[in-house]
């Protein structure tokens, strides 16, 4: 909802993502602040920053699949793994340029994801989520059982001396800028997808797939497409992860990670791209807080012991997620929208 006094004279400006000058200024400030941040922040915050950007890309993909198209996806972590291995392999063996390897890794993940999405032609509802559990099992099997020279088997693949346009990708700052650029491109892309014909068909399928089918939407194709998009986003995130850590191995991509991504999406709010970003920030900050506050808490309560403090933080986070589902299923984003509206309308209630 726009403040009063703002009118648009063309359809194009009414549909625009950045609609007013203050919005454009705020966005430019935010991007400038994020881009300049690594010049002042410490190593640890930079590392946390790019870990967040990478997670955000994967969660945006999940948001399109689950939040917009309504398809529960428990394979996001496996899709990320396919992208990571694809990208690492392309960088390691044919020595491709970084950007090309990233995109092709994303495409590999998208194809893998769409294979599972294709089962949507026959399967409805939550059975579809179960095929994504199979994706996880098959990913593990393939990596561990293909010949060791191909994907490194249980040891994983190492990457070193990566370069992008003459800059070395060996330090955390350049990784930060690379992931930030990727996040900006992928976020813009996500807004494009959800405002397009495909995004509208996703929402129609989510709200009622029988009705959507009657209105001429190819329901099975829309579901497969949702998985394709989600897996592509996961694949890009996975490729960036491989570049950032300079190492890929299967244990980085577990079913439990997929569940954490679902938690980020729920806390942020289902059906909102910005919600995916906010949820990821909140959950990642909370987990980082656990890691950094844990030792201090252990000092405070020596009887508890380190294991118990860390584990009880997990209980806390798990409780928060379930409470969100019970009492605020629309997530933090919904609260933000409500308070924005109240601010604009003040002193009137509506």
């Amino acid at each position: 909802m726009d403040p009063s006094g703002i009118f648009f004279t063309s359809h194009g400006s009414d549909r625009a993502l950045v609609r007013t000058r203050p919005q454009a200024a705020a966005l430019a400030l935010l991007i400038a602040a994020l881009a300049l941040a690594p010049l002042v922040l410490s190593e640890r915050w930079i590392a946390l920053g790019y870990a967040m950007f990478i997670a955000m890309i994967a969660v945006i993909g999940l948001q399109i699949c689950t939040g917009y198209a309504g398809q529960v996806n428990l394979g996001q972590s496996a899709f990320m793994g396919v992208g990571a291995y694809g990208c690492a392999w392309l960088l390691h063996f044919p020595q491709m340029p970084v950007v090309l390897a990233l995109v092709l890794g994303g495409v590999a993940a998208a194809i893998f994801g769409a294979l599972f999405g294709l089962t949507a032609a026959r399967i409805k509802g939550f059975y579809l989520a179960l095929t994504t559990i199979a994706a996880q099992a098959i990913f593990y099997f393939l990596v561990l059982n293909l010949p060791g020279e191909w994907l490194g088997g249980a040891g994983g693949l190492h990457l070193d001396n990566l370069q992008l346009m003459g800059f070395s990708l060996g330090n955390d700052r350049s990784i930060y800028w690379l992931t930030l650029a990727a996040l900006m491109i992928m976020t813009t892309g996500a807004f494009g997808i959800i405002r397009s014909r495909h995004g509208r068909s996703f929402e129609a399928v989510r709200d009622d797939d029988v009705a959507a089918g009657m209105m001429g939407i190819n329901v099975a194709a829309a579901k497969a497409r949702a998985f394709l998009v989600a897996a592509f986003y996961a694949g890009i995130a996975g490729g960036l992860w491989a570049i950032a850590l300079r190492h890929v191995s299967v244990e980085q991509f577990t079913l439990f990670n997929s569940i954490w991504m679902i938690a980020m999406m729920i806390v942020g709010g289902l059906g909102s791209i910005v919600g995916a970003l906010i949820g990821t920030i909140l959950i990642q900050l909370a987990r980082e807080g656990v890691v950094s506050l844990g030792p201090q808490l252990v000092d405070l309560i020596p009887s508890a012991g380190q294991d118990i403090v860390f584990a009880s933080m997990n209980v806390l986070l798990g409780t928060v997620i379930v409470l969100f589902l019970l009492f605020e299923p629309k997530g933090v984003m919904h609260r933000i929208e409500i308070s924005k509206r109240a601010y604009r309308l003040w002193p009137f209630p509506y």
């Binding site: 679902i262 938690a263 729920i266 294991d307 118990i308 997990n314 798990g318 379930v322 589902l325």
Partner: peptide
Amino acid sequence: SVFSMVMVTIGLVILIRGVVLVIWGA
């Protein structure tokens, strides 16, 4: 909706694992 109930079972995965870790350790 069934969707939100299934999501709660997914949240329970994290919660129960945490409880087990707190009480019995890793």
